[in-house]
Every structure is written in structure tokens, then in C-alpha cells.
Amino acid sequence: METLAFLLAALAVVLAIPVPKWLHTARFRVRSPWVAMVLWQAIALAGGLAIIGAPIVYGLSPFGNSLPSAFVTLAEAVRYEDYAGLEERDVHPSHIFALCLGALLAAHLLLTLARTFYRVRSARRRHREMVNLLSTPLTDDGTQALPDRLTDTHVIEHEAPLAYCLPGRTNAGALTVLSRGLLDQLSPEELGAVIAHEKTHLRQRHHFLTLAFEAWYRALPWLPTTRYGREAVLELTEMLADDGALGEHSRTDLLRSIATTTPGGEDPEQQLSTGQGGIITGARLQRLIAPPEPLGPVARAAVLGLSAALLAVPTGLLLFS
């Protein structure tokens, strides 16, 4: 049990520090973003499991040889107030401390996850109300050959070229929002590419994939790698959405629409200041300009296998060792 605790602690450290540092700039993410996405999700889950599991396993180690049996023994000792037995079992205050630490960490991570979920949901609800008041549903006025599936696309009256999507509770409740400036500046083909990009975000439910990373970042903001994870996963969702759009639209249309919506061009109004700059779109742009080869089947299988092992090995050790 003690060995297992140290193994889990080592896994937690490795997953918290060197691995995200390497992965957030790893070259292969550009070649096959969905493979990198699977690996990130496995890291988030396995890392959370290891960081909570390590202190709990250590704290339970005097009580039995496997986690379930140790847990039962401890529960019975508490239930029958058999505190004399604790001495025989060689329970040290450090074990009690580790148990408390594990419980606190588990509560902290799970509560932050829940709070993030509800905060994001209510922020979206507020935003959706504003969109409903300020925008009009996009209808094909016959002048443009717009793509179909327009029922949930709304137009907001502003000259800055903008597009974004707002996930709903179900996919039917989701919205894609375009600005008047975007409609004016893009050709129908380019517009189609933008809409396809946004719909891919919604269809692939990228808002769920980013949730855990948003939560870990809020729970452990002092850990630099939680920020890497959050940014890397956002970047991957953009690449995945681009790939989705390229299924139906040409690379040139997508690139042109990016060029138009990029600040620094003829920005009609400086009323809207742009958010954080940085790495997020650089790699995304590069891979659109010069498309890299996707990962070969062997490399792909290796990364996916690693992801599965990350989840299966700690879980298996915890339950069956």
C-alpha cells in the first residue's frame, strides 16, 4: 500500500509538471489534434485521481493490504470506537494527516468542478438572453447563397467582423452568433466556412472538453501547468473546428475568413478591444497555411494506448492491488 501511495504521488507530480509542459507545444498535436485531445483528457482525469489517491492510500496503508479492505477496517474502527486498535496497527499522526489532506483535496477539486459548471452555465444563460434581445435570426434573403441549417444562427448589429457560438443545454438550444460586419465583409463561401467552424464546436461539444481544464485552472491557479492545459485544450478545439469546417469548405475560404476577422486589418472601430494575445492562434494558422501530415497509425495507436493506460493503471492499482 505504501509503495502504491508513492507510485501515485510520483504519477501526480509527473502529470502535473513535465508532461503538460511538453504536451502543450508537442509537434504531434498540430498533426492530429484529436489524438492530443484524448491524451489531455486522460491526463486531467488520471492526474486528478493520482493527486487525490496518493494521500488517501498512504493514510489507509496501516489498515489493510488493499484500498477497499483498508477502508472497511477503518470504517469499522471508527464505528465501534475501537481506538485502542489504532495503536496496534501502528497508525502514526502522519497517516491521519494524509487522510485529511486527501479528503480536502478531493472536496476542493470536485467542488471547484461543480462550481465552474454552474457559473459557466449561468453566464451562458445571461448571455443568451442578451443575444435574444439584441440579435435577429439570420434568414436567407435571397441575395446570398447561404448554407442551410440557419435556424439557430443569429445576427448582431455591429460593424466589427465577429463570429462565435454559444452552447446550449442540448444541441438544439445552441446558438451561432454572427455580426453584421462579418456578413458584409465575407463572401457566401467564406461565411459558410465560418459557420461550419462554429457548428463543429457545437456538434463535437467542445465546451465539455474544456470544462475540466477550466476547473483545474481555477482550483490550482498557482500550478503553472493548469494554465498550459487550459490554453492547449482551447487551441486544440480551434484546430478540430477548423478540420470540421474543411470537411465541407475549401482551405482558401477558411483562410480568407480568418484574414478578414483578424484585428489589424481595416478595423472599423476600436470600440471593441481585443482580448489576450498569444500562442493560441499561431499554430492553428500555421497548420492551415501549410497542412502537416496526420500522425501515422502506429504513432496514433501509441498515444491512444498511453491515454488508456493512464486511466486504467491507477484505477486498477487502487481497486485490485
Binding site: 451562458r124 462565435y164 457560438c165 474544456t210 478545439t237 480568418i258 483578424t262
Partner: peptide, 10 residues
């Protein structure tokens, strides 16, 4: 609240 807008920061 919103999933990344179409283009953010180039």
C-alpha cells in the same frame, strides 16, 4: 461563457 470566438488573437 462562450466558446472561443472565430478568431481570437493572431
Amino acid at each position: 461563457a462562450v466558446l472561443a470566438r472565430f478568431i481570437g488573437s493572431v
